[in-house]
Computed example of a mutant assay.
Amino acid sequence: MQNADTVLGVLRERGRKGLPCDELYRQMFNPQLYLLAYGRIYSNKGAMTAGATKETADGMSMNVIQRVIDAMRHERYRFSPARRVHIPKKYGKLRPLGLPTWSDKLVGEVVRLLLEA
């Protein structure tokens, strides 16, 4: 597979020139993009907060990435429902907050990387 920076650079350049970006879904199978996404969201405070499952950033491995890629390749990946928590606001009201699972955060970051490029 190609390096993540190379893939994103090519997509950026095609976007600047107004060329179509075909087969973008195929890039979702690149493990390098998942490692780049992991590096970006790992330092976030919410990375260690469990979502609907007990899965967090600490349980991350190449096996998890390969499992997600395999599910994407066979079009079996489904986003899990987010865990809903209510956080108190300054003036006593509650604000709803959705906590997705770690793999959902990771896939979302990869999609964001591809679409922003």
Results as ranks from 00 to 15, higher is better:
L19H: 09
R78M: 04
Y91F: 13
T49K: 11
A4I: 00
N3A: 14
C21E: 11
A117M: 05
I69S: 03
W102R: 03
Y77S: 06
R67E: 11
L114P: 08
A50H: 06
E13Y: 04
R76S: 11
Q2I: 00
M48P: 00
G39T: 02
D70R: 15
L99I: 15
L113P: 13
P100T: 08
T6W: 10
L11H: 05
R12I: 08
Y42V: 11
T56I: 12
A50C: 10
R67Q: 10
L36Y: 04
Q32P: 02
G46C: 04
S61L: 04
I87L: 15
K90Y: 01
Q27E: 15
R95K: 08
V107N: 05
T6I: 12
V85P: 03
M1P: 06
Y77W: 13
P81M: 01
L99N: 05
V64E: 06
R12M: 13
L113M: 09
M72Y: 07
E13F: 05
V10N: 14
A47C: 07
Y25W: 12
Y77R: 10
G18H: 02
F29V: 02
P31E: 08
V10Y: 11
T6N: 07
G108W: 00
R16D: 05
T53C: 06
K93N: 09
K90R: 12
A82D: 11
N44M: 00
K90S: 10
A71N: 13
V110Q: 04
S43C: 02
E109I: 02
Y34P: 05
Q2E: 14
P20D: 12
L11E: 07
P88F: 01
Q27C: 13
L97A: 02
V111Y: 01
R84I: 07
A37I: 06
P100W: 03
D22M: 11
E116D: 12
L36S: 09
N30L: 08
D58N: 11
S43V: 05
V111I: 15
V7P: 04
I87Y: 02
G108M: 06
E55C: 03
M72P: 00
N30D: 07
L97T: 00
Y91K: 15
L19N: 10
P100H: 06
K45L: 10
A117Y: 07
Q2F: 07
H86N: 07
K17A: 15
L106H: 01
I65W: 00
